[in-house]
Structure formats: C-alpha cells, structure tokens
C-alpha cells in the first residue's frame, strides 16, 4: 500500500470502491476499548436495550476510524486527512453489514499538495449510520 491512486488522476465524480464491514459484537467492543471508551452501551447488550437501542452499538470514535480507513484504503499511505465531518444517523449494530460508498466531490491544488474532498455514506439495514465529507491531501507527483 503506497499510493493506491496517482493523485493526478483524481477527478470529480470518481467513485471509491465500496467497502462492506460485517459488524459484529467483537468489532464494536474492540473499537470501543481501543479508543478507551468504556460506556456500557458499547459492550453491554442489556444496558444498551435499557437505553432503547436494539443492541450494543458502535461508538463514534470507531465510526470516525472506519471512515478514515475507508478513505486511506483508497487514497494510499501518502494520504493525509485534514477533516472528517459527519452527520450521525442510526446505530451500527451487530449482525448487519455497514456499507461504505463515496465519491470525489471536489479537487483542488494548494502549494505542493492536491486537496481532495470525498463525500461518503455508511449505511446498514436501519438506514444511514453516517454521512459526510473527508478532505484528504496527496503530494503532487
């Protein structure tokens, strides 16, 4: 994984490959604990249901982590993320696929960098889990 895409080829409208994450209890708990988030709603099903949720659900740090990973899996290891702006919708719960789709919605140049805006959404059976934009830069090659 170096640069998955030559930055000069990035055009508005370019679709990122879809990524489907099989969300399990382990995925949710691993992400919560790795981000030092010990809220019971992210590991204790009984507690989560008591709060009106269908099951334990993914914490926001993990969602942001997967959003970042979705973009850098495509843009490569030379990519530097500047912003992650998301609107949060329904919960990401065990037993459902979380499908990430995105496309390039703006491309610019600044000094020695190409600046790329990706507009993306992560959707499961309950609807939109997260929608928003990630701005990422790549060195001009």
């Amino acid at each position: 994984m170096k640069t998955a895409i030559p930055s000069s080829n990035v055009k508005v409208g370019h679709e990122l490959p879809e990524f489907a994450l099989p969300v399990t209890s382990t995925v949710i708990v691993a992400g919560a604990i790795a981000s030092r988030d010990f809220m019971p709603a992210h590991h204790d099903p009984e507690y989560a249901r008591g709060q009106g949720a269908p099951d334990i659900f993914m914490n926001i740090l993990t969602t942001n982590g997967y959003v970042a990973r979705y973009v850098t899996d495509w843009a490569g290891s030379e990519a530097m993320i500047r912003t992650i702006r998301i609107r949060l919708g329904g919960p990401a719960v065990p037993g459902q696929l979380l499908r990430f789709t995105g496309q390039v919605t703006a491309v610019g140049e600044e000094a020695d960098e190409r600046v790329i805006e990706v507009t993306l959404r992560a959707v499961n059976d309950l609807g939109e889990h997260a929608t928003g934009t990630v701005v990422v830069t790549l060195p001009l090659t």
Binding site: R36, F38, A41, N64, V67, R69
Partner: peptide
C-alpha cells in the same frame, strides 16, 4: 498515529465500578 485516534488520547481513565449507574 491514526488521525481518528485524536479523541482517544485524552479520554479520561474510567472508574469501572458504577459506570452504568453514571450513564456511562
């Protein structure tokens, strides 16, 4: 560091006992 870890670095260390009663 992965950029999305930003918040994780300053998360308070939890007191596990009673965390549910404190709403997390």
């Amino acid at each position: 560091a992965p950029p999305a870890m930003l918040q994780a670095w300053t998360m308070p260390s939890p007191k596990i006992e009673g965390i549910a009663e404190r709403g997390g």
